[in-house]
Design a protein around this nucleic acid. Sequence first.
DNA 1: AGTTAGCACTCGATGAAGATGAGTGCTAAC
DNA 2: GTTAGCACTCATCTTCATCGAGTGCTAACT
Lengths: 346, 346
Amino acid sequence: MELDARKMRILQAIIDDYILTASPVGSRTIAKSTDIGLSSATIRNEMSDLEEMGFLEQPHTSAGRIPSDKAYRLYVDSIMRRSQLSRDELSFISEHYSKKLGEVDDIVKQTAFVLSSVTRYASMVLSPRLHTARLRYIHLVGLGEGKALLLIVTDSGLTRDSLIRIPYGMEQSELERISLMLNAKLSDCRLDDIMASRMDDIAGELGEHARFLNSIIKSLGESLEQKAKRVELSGAMNLLSLPEYSDVDRAKDILSVMEKGDALYEMLKGREDVEFTIKIGHENELSSMKDCSVVTATYKIGSEPIGTFGVIGPTRMNYPKVLAVMGHIGRTLSETLTNMLDEERK
Amino acid sequence: MELDARKMRILQAIIDDYILTASPVGSRTIAKSTDIGLSSATIRNEMSDLEEMGFLEQPHTSAGRIPSDKAYRLYVDSIMRRSQLSRDELSFISEHYSKKLGEVDDIVKQTAFVLSSVTRYASMVLSPRLHTARLRYIHLVGLGEGKALLLIVTDSGLTRDSLIRIPYGMEQSELERISLMLNAKLSDCRLDDIMASRMDDIAGELGEHARFLNSIIKSLGESLEQKAKRVELSGAMNLLSLPEYSDVDRAKDILSVMEKGDALYEMLKGREDVEFTIKIGHENELSSMKDCSVVTATYKIGSEPIGTFGVIGPTRMNYPKVLAVMGHIGRTLSETLTNMLDEERK
DNA sequence: AGTTAGCACTCGATGAAGATGAGTGCTAAC
DNA sequence: GTTAGCACTCATCTTCATCGAGTGCTAACT
């Protein structure tokens, strides 16, 4: 059996309707609602074919049909057309990025908020990753006996700090000296190079403090790793307004997953190299997400993809709109960060 | 009418039962379940009295009774007895605090997680406040044209950073000079003093940069304010398992509020001066919380109360357990932070 | 007096029976 | 190949009766 233009047309109509109403759509609805010029009986036959081909499913005999994951896949790949954002949406978004300079964390948070507000689904935003960043400043601040705070600032203005143990009796002046030396040696080095092992030559200069230095690096690495996994979640409760989650148990299943930062991180990580990814239903790794779709996109600083963000919604998500929103927010976010942090690279 | 010992006893039995079952409790249940030695008829009379006095409510004529907010108030004030944590709970908690030194943010996050896991309600934790903290280190790091990052570290090892504008053409060496001067002048000053206006004498020394300095302070203040309002939320989805939220709309009402960080902050702020607060139902400022109870407690660094945390649950919350858990977690958290950051003050 | 047994009554919850209607598949005619 | 017509399916809604937990009241008991 072949998927001709007419079947395609009918499938599109069904998907469009289902995205809107969330209830199984019957042949008569399609016959009437569109200018397709076919009777319900004909459409019925076509729908029967589409079901056989795996694009439609029937909840029970006397219900209409709903699109399968396969249908959505076809839809996003070949059928749907990009949609435009409304004037209101555009101004809502730009409004939220026109504020004064803030901290990167705030912008990340803001982005999550805007994304979930405009899409009315759940959104998540991963912080900019740092391993390609370069070190601009490093400093050790003594804190009482045996402890110090390690501060670093990257060239793009992101900071990390990490509490470390230092040898007892070490003076602040000694910390100063080490800080200066670290700055001299490490400035403008990429963080992942530093992590790797470019420390050997420095260790020599420090003499007795070589072991201490290792602990600094290790601690820094752990801290970076930890922080990089922080995901900002927003609008999870939007999902409760959708009919598919009118049953509390369903809602609990999906929302509980979203409460786990790890799970969100897994959905977002390692997707910096593609502009968009769309995972529909069973295409998600997590089986608890098999009734959801997850769309991710990337943002950049300068021309370097530096982070990802995503939307979680039902498989009958309004893909055209979500993609339009994410494209626009991705650009806006990238511009904002680039202007804010890194005018040279632009 | 008087609230004699017997009425009290009956009320306690009703509350205990209702906390457990969440369904209206009738006179027979009480007569049988306790060793109170009274017939259901007698208890019925007493219950009728208790209702008249405002301690009980009847959802409809032929249902049992449920405790009113007033009853819970009496219960937490006079009736209930502290409960003990189980061995498992204690070890679960200490396990999560025995990890290596981390960052304060992580500990806050961890606390929220532990608190919601043990209570099975929603928990929230406010970050340590900084205005009573003293400045240990301040530094300006230049970032490309016209921008710099302001870093501060408090005596307890907490950091804040804030992106600021600097006059165009200002050199890194100039920033160094200002940083040194700021350090010399401001070290060991309380942050709120700095915010207030102890800057006048410094402004003089800076000459032409006086206006610039003002913007630094202003930006720092805003950054502190912002960050101080961050509330870590955890376990919100636990509420979905409770029968009172088996209706999605109810659940949405309450969970949507919790998604707003501001709202949580309002519940937690300004409660550092009392060990515990308990707000039952209508006692909460937010009307959307009128079916919930919010319990807050404080934690300290050294002997200084420095932050608050709380639990949100239904009014039929298991108060004895929640208080026991919060007491224990508060102590553990205080110890952890104190050991970690601030051995002198201990 | 206070307590209790007994009883009529209330009212939500449960469930069965029937009606409704959206939707299908199939057949036969166009 | 398309469509009208029709019998059939099945979730959903409505109605109605039943059930039972729980009440308030009264009268008897201690």
